[in-house]
Each structure stands twice: as structure tokens, then as C-alpha cells.
């Protein structure tokens, strides 16, 4: 039985097709489903091993990025999400999906992974105040995340206006480090943190580009791994030759492999 990945979309989701494609390239069976269908029939969530919230501008990012989608999950899907996580399943949030996971409390998360609007961190306006599309280098800084291999450096693009990570006082960066929850950090070409703009493109505290929860099964990141899966996705492929596939595909392969 192939691993089944749900790509949950709503009004304004716009990276659902390439995310579905990435899952398929990694060997999963992926389906794009509107959140309305899930709210009509929440039990459907149990049909899948992996829940993905893809990138886009859910509900226009009106009020704040990911906020209205998060509000919907909290008010309509809390119980099934809870059951889903209790059943050892995976959650991946990319860009707007990461913003949703942070705003519905699943990241950085807490024991029991309760969805809640009481956030422990946020993703807010980039320091430069503008939307920006730019490739970044990410260093994997945890051994806990199912989707990642520690020490790896992966290139992928960011494309967002609200991606600056700011932890809440209740869960400072040190606590996240200690909990092994800082999944990926923005680094320079030599793999170093603290390099500033443009390496850290949005001013994220601690160069944090992505987080996982304490179990490593919920992973969210601002950059787009699904935009580096083809041999010609990397901006330098005409310089160094097109490889077999893009480096971002590993994220999806590892997600699928978890169920092997």
C-alpha cells in the first residue's frame, strides 16, 4: 500500500499542485482536498498518513498570514487532528502551511499537541517589510525531525512577506534549542549562522527557518522544498549541470520512508 499524503487546500492556497507532485515523485499517493470537504467529513483525515498544508495565501493572508486557516482548524478540526497525531502520523507545513501550524499552536507545540490559538511563537513581517523571493541555504540542526537528516545543507527558495520567526517569551529560543526543535536554520555559503541579510532573508530570530515539535513528526518551514525537486530547479543548474533531482525531494522521501 502506498503512503497516502493529504494536501489540504483552501481559498488562496497556491502551492498545492507542486506539493502533490513532490509527494508523488517521492513515491506517495497524494491527494489535494479542500478544507470544506474535511470539515464536512472530518473522519476522512484518518485515511491519510501524512497531512500537508502547502504554501499560498490562505484567505489572502487577511488579518495575518495563515491566521484564518488556523482559526478554522481550531474551531472545526481540533479533535481529528489530535487523533491523527496520536496515531503516529506526520504533518508538514510549508510557507503559509508553516504559518498555519504556528498560529494553531502545533508548532513549536506542546505535549499532547493540542491545537490552540494561544501561540508560542509567530511568523511576522520580514525586517525589510517586503515580499521577497530568494534562494537560501538551510542547515539541519536537529536529529529529531523525521523529514530531515542532521548536518545536511539543503538549498531552496523562500517566497514570503511574513516569515520572520519570533519566539514568545514563554518559549525562548534556548528552550527550543534544548528541546531539539530548531529543525533548519538559514546559513551562508560556508554553512555558518549569524551571517545576516541576505542569508537570513527576513530577520528571523536565531536564523530559524523551520521548526519541528518535540516528537519530530510535525515539521514546518518557510522555504519551499517542493520548488527544488526537478533537475532544473536550482538556480545554478546551468553552471554545474542538472543532477538527477533537486535536493528538496529528500524531505518528501524521508516522510514517505517513515512508513516503510
Amino acid at each position: 500500500m502506498p503512503v497516502k499524503a493529504l494536501v489540504l487546500r483552501t481559498a488562496g492556497t497556491n502551492c498545492d499542485e507542486e506539493t502533490q507532485f513532490a509527494w508523488e515523485q517521492a513515491g506517495a499517493e497524494a491527494e489535494r482536498v479542500h478544507v470544506n470537504r474535511l470539515i464536512e467529513n472530518p473522519k476522512r483525515l484518518a485515511d491519510y498518513q501524512i497531512l500537508t498544508i502547502p504554501g499560498g495565501f490562505s484567505y489572502g493572508d487577511d488579518i495575518a498570514a495563515g491566521k484564518i486557516f488556523a482559526n478554522q482548524i481550531v474551531h472545526h478540526l481540533a479533535d481529528v487532528v489530535q487523533e491523527f497525531l496520536a496515531a503516529d502520523r506526520l504533518v508538514l507545513g510549508i510557507c503559509n502551511g508553516f504559518q498555519v501550524l504556528v498560529k494553531c499552536g502545533l508548532l513549536p507545540g506542546s505535549d499532547g499537541a493540542r491545537v490552540t490559538l494561544a501561540q508560542k511563537a509567530t511568523l511576522t513581517s520580514n525586517d525589510r517589510g517586503l515580499f521577497e523571493d530568494r534562494w537560501v541555504h538551510l542547515r539541519v540542526d536537529t536529529d529529531r525531525c523525521v523529514f530531515l537528516g542532521q548536518g545536511e545543507v539543503i538549498d531552496m527558495p523562500i517566497a514570503h512577506a511574513e516569515g520572520k520567526f519570533v519566539p514568545a517569551d514563554a518559549m525562548p529560543i534556548e528552550a527550543l534549542e534544548k528541546g531539539n526543535q530548531i529543525a533548519v536554520r538559514y546559513v551562508d555559503t560556508d554553512g555558518n549562522t549569524g551571517a545576516g541579510y541576505p542569508w537570513n532573508p527576513n530577520g528571523s530570530v536565531g536564523d530559524v527557518a523551520g521548526l519541528c515539535d518535540a516528537t519530530g513528526r510535525i515539521f514546518g518551514l518557510m522555504p519551499h522544498p517542493e520548488r527544488n525537486v526537478l533537475p532544473w530547479h536550482h538556480p545554478h543548474w546551468t553552471r554545474r549541470g542538472a543532477g538527477k533531482e533537486g535536493g528538496g525531494l529528500r524531505v518528501f522521501r524521508r516522510g514517505v520512508a517513515y512508513f516503510a
Binding site: N14, E18, G55, L130, E132, D133, H224, R227
Partner: peptide, 10 residues
């Protein structure tokens, strides 16, 4: 150019 998402849709 950078203010436009020039690679959405992959």
C-alpha cells in the same frame, strides 16, 4: 523582480 514570486507552481 524579488518582490514577485517568480517560481510558484514549480
Amino acid at each position: 523582480i524579488r518582490q514577485y514570486d517568480h517560481e510558484v507552481q514549480g
